[in-house]
């Protein structure tokens, strides 16, 4: 083999034959120069919360500057005015009360929707009729905006919580069921067979193999339907207004707009945003970090 160049065609330039060598030093252990800790700058630019905070501060500054430049508190109050109104409403206890009213209904509706979605998905993976039903219902009802159901809900359940619940369940059920079901379907054949060959079957197979394997999709479904339910809730409250003496955040926004308290309207909107950020940042991020990221099923 070492004489291989001889096989070359005549007149063709061949690579030179170079001396061989071996290095025993390459086997020695090196001092710990192979890895070094990240510097502060590298650490900060790698931290997502840090980057998001910087972005948020920039947006807030932009708002404040624009508000000052526009100088029309009836259209866009400045960030300062909004925060003042926010703080005043918090202190007077109105905003916490409204928030609590909204959150309570939201959590009830969300829980009911999740429960129903679970039932539908279990039906869909265990029976063919269930599967067809889920596919048909999701494609029919998922595009239907919750607000479009409000007039009907009012007719059936009257003004108040039952109507809101109905609308909430509608906005949670379909996206969650659809995501969960497609998550189950995308569990790899190898993983299914691996589960079966080590002796897992029946309900335990669903609980111990399918659900964790489909968890990234389930989590996405939970996040989407959380956002959908917030939107539907605020919309419903704007329409229903006050019921049984205590309105929610939607009502707070509507009421203040009628009284041209625009800073208060912004305070209400900010509350909705804050709760959304809080739930996303604390609840969903934590769940993600402890599950799908840790398991390598989703990139960090």
């Amino acid at each position: 083999m070492a004489d291989a160049p001889a096989a070359g065609r005549p007149g063709r330039a061949l690579p030179p034959v170079r001396p061989e060598f071996e290095r025993d030093e390459a086997l020695e252990e090196l001092p710990a120069a192979v890895q070094r800790p990240l510097r502060l700058r590298e650490r900060l630019s790698g931290s997502e919360p840090f980057r998001l905070t910087v972005l948020l501060v920039a947006l807030a500054l932009g708002w404040q500057v624009y508000g000052l430049w526009l100088n029309n508190p009836l259209l866009v109050p400045t960030l300062g005015e909004t925060l003042e109104a926010f703080w005043a409403s918090v202190l007077s206890g109105v905003l916490p009360l409204r928030t609590w009213t909204s959150l309570r209904v939201l959590l009830l509706g969300y829980a009911a929707g999740v429960g129903l979605a679970t039932v539908m998905t279990v039906l869909a993976i265990t029976t063919r009729t269930g599967r067809d039903l889920l596919q048909l219902l999701t494609s029919m009802l998922a595009p239907l905006p919750a607000i479009a159901l409000l007039p009907l809900a009012l007719l059936w359940f009257g003004l108040g919580e039952p109507s809101t619940m109905f609308v909430l369940i509608h906005s949670v059920l379909w996206p969650l069921a659809l995501n969960t079901y497609s998550g189950f379907r995308s569990v790899s054949e190898t993983l299914r067979m691996a589960g079966q060959t080590i002796g897992v079957s029946g309900l335990r197979f669903v609980l111990k193999i399918l659900i964790p394997a489909a968890f990234p999709s389930i989590l996405t479904g939970l996040k989407i339907s959380w956002a959908f339910s917030w939107r539907s809730l605020i919309a419903a409250e704007l329409v229903f207004g006050v019921s049984a003496g205590s309105g929610g955040l939607g009502w707070f926004i509507f009421e203040n707009r009628n009284q041209l308290e625009i800073a208060q309207v912004f305070a209400g909107l900010i509350t909705v945003i804050l709760i959304g950020l809080l739930v996303e940042g604390l609840v969903f991020r934590t769940v993600e970090r402890r599950t799908v990221r840790r398991w390598g099923m989703q990139r960090a």
Partner: peptide, 20 residues
């Protein structure tokens, strides 16, 4: 009749371990 642990199978694919 059915899959079972007395005939465990090792697959070619790397995703046969439970990632969680």
């Amino acid at each position: 009749r059915r899959p079972g642990p007395e005939r465990v199978m090792v697959f070619q694919e790397f995703d046969q371990l439970l990632p969680w």
